[in-house]
C-alpha cells in the first residue's frame, strides 16, 4: 500500500468521527460520566471506609464521608501495634500485619508473572510460526481456563500437601512439599496464567509480518538474533500489557491461595479475608485499608506503563 493512499484512507473515517462528536457531546459525556461513577463508586466506598472507625462502618443511613477520620485502620494493618492507640481489635486469633503478606504477594506474583511472560512469549512465537501443537491448538489454549478454579482446588491440595511430599520422600528420601510455600504458589500461578499469556501474545506475534524475519534471515541473522532484534522489540508493548494483565490476575487471586497456603504463606487477598473477629464480625475498616493498599501498586504500575497500554491495545500498530 502506498503511503499517500493509506493517509487518505485514514483521513475519511476520522473525519466522520469528528462530525459525529460535534453533534452530541452532551449525551456522550453524560453517559461516560454516569458509567464512570458506577465504576468508581466501590473504590470510593473502600477508600472512605478505610478512614472510618468501627462505629461508622455499618451505620444507617450511611455516612458518605467519615465523620471522624482516623488512621487507626492503617495503623493496625501496618504495625498491629495497637496497644498505645487504643484500637485493640482482634483479627482472627493471631495478630498479623500486612508486611509479610505484601512480601509474599510481591514475590509470588512478580516471579510467576515474569516467568509466564517469558515462556508464554516464546510459546506464542512457536505456535504462530511453526503451528506447534497443530493448527487448532491456538484455539484450545484457553480451554484449561474454562475449568472453574474451585474444581481443581481440592485435587491440587491433594498433590501439594500429600502426593508430592509422599512421592519425593519415597523416591529421593527427602520430603518436598509445595503446600504453603512461595515456590508452590508461584508454580501454580505460572501454570494457571500461562494460557492467558500465550493467547494474548499470539495476537501480538501474529501481527509481526514474517517477511521481516525473512529479511533478517537473508542478511545472515540467526533465529535467536532475529527474535532479539526484530520480533521482541516489536511485541514489547504487547508484553508489557500482558504482564500487567497477568500480574493483576495473580495479585487478586483468592481461592487457590486460600486453599493451598496456611499458616506460613499468606497473600494479600487471603490476609484481607483474615480480618474478621468472633465478636465483631468482619473488620470492615482494616479490610478497606488493605484493599486500598492492594490497589495502589496496580494503579502505579498502570500509570507507569500507560504509553505501552495505548500502543499495546491498538492492534495493527505495525502498518506503515
Amino acid at each position: 500500500m502506498s503511503n499517500a493512499h493509506s493517509k487518505t484512507q485514514a483521513a475519511t473515517p476520522a473525519g466522520q468521527k469528528d462530525r459525529r462528536r460535534d453533534h452530541m457531546p452532551l449525551v456522550r459525556h453524560a453517559i461516560l460520566i454516569g458509567w464512570a461513577l458506577i465504576i468508581m463508586f466501590p473504590i470510593f466506598w473502600m477508600l472512605q471506609t478505610s478512614f472510618k472507625d468501627s462505629g461508622e462502618w455499618v451505620t444507617w443511613p450511611p455516612n458518605w464521608l467519615p465523620q471522624d477520620p482516623t488512621l487507626k485502620n492503617y495503623q493496625q494493618i501496618f504495625t498491629f501495634d495497637v496497644s498505645g492507640s487504643g484500637v485493640a481489635r482482634e483479627a482472627t486469633d493471631q495478630p498479623f500485619s500486612i508486611w509479610g503478606s505484601l512480601r509474599d504477594s510481591l514475590i509470588i506474583c512478580t516471579l510467576s508473572s515474569l516467568i509466564a511472560l517469558f515462556m508464554g512469549t516464546f510459546l506464542a512465537y512457536s505456535i504462530s510460526r511453526f503451528n506447534v501443537g497443530g493448527k487448532k491448538f491456538r484455539h484450545m489454549v484457553l480451554l484449561v481456563r474454562m475449568i472453574p478454579p474451585i474444581v481443581i482446588a481440592i485435587p491440587l491440595l491433594m498433590y501439594y500437601a500429600v502426593l508430592i511430599p509422599f512421592a519425593t520422600e519415597a523416591v529421593f528420601g527427602a520430603r518436598i512439599s509445595l503446600f504453603d510455600t512461595r515456590i508452590g504458589m508461584s508454580i501454580l500461578y505460572l501454570t494457571v496464567t500461562l494460557p492467558f499469556v500465550i493467547w494474548m501474545m499470539l495476537s501480538f506475534v501474529d501481527e509481526v509480518p514474517y517477511t521481516l524475519e525473512h529479511a533478517a534471515r537473508i542478511m545472515g541473522a540467526g533465529r535467536m538474533y532475529t527474535l532479539r532484534k526484530v520480533v521482541l522489540p516489536l511485541v514489547a508493548s504487547g508484553m508489557v500489557v500482558t504482564f500487567l494483565f497477568v500480574f493483576i490476575l495473580n495479585w487478586a487471586e483468592f481461592l487457590l491461595a486460600l486453599t493451598l497456603t496456611h499458616p506460613d504463606v499468606s497473600t494479600l487477598p487471603v490476609l484481607l479475608n483474615k480480618f474478621q473477629s468472633a465478636s465483631e464480625g468482619r473488620l470492615y475498616g482494616p479490610q478497606a485499608a488493605i484493599g486500598t493498599v492492594i490497589t495502589i501498586p496496580v494503579v502505579i504500575l498502570g500509570i507507569a506503563i500507560q504509553k505501552h497500554l495505548v500502543k499495546g491495545f491498538s492492534f495493527g500498530m505495525l502498518r506503515r
Partner: peptide, 20 residues
Amino acid sequence: TEPGERGLGMVFQDLALFPH
C-alpha cells in the same frame, strides 16, 4: 545452504523494513 550464507541481497514486495 542457509539463506544468510548464499551471498544474496533481497528486496521484498512489502519492503520488510524494520519499523522500530
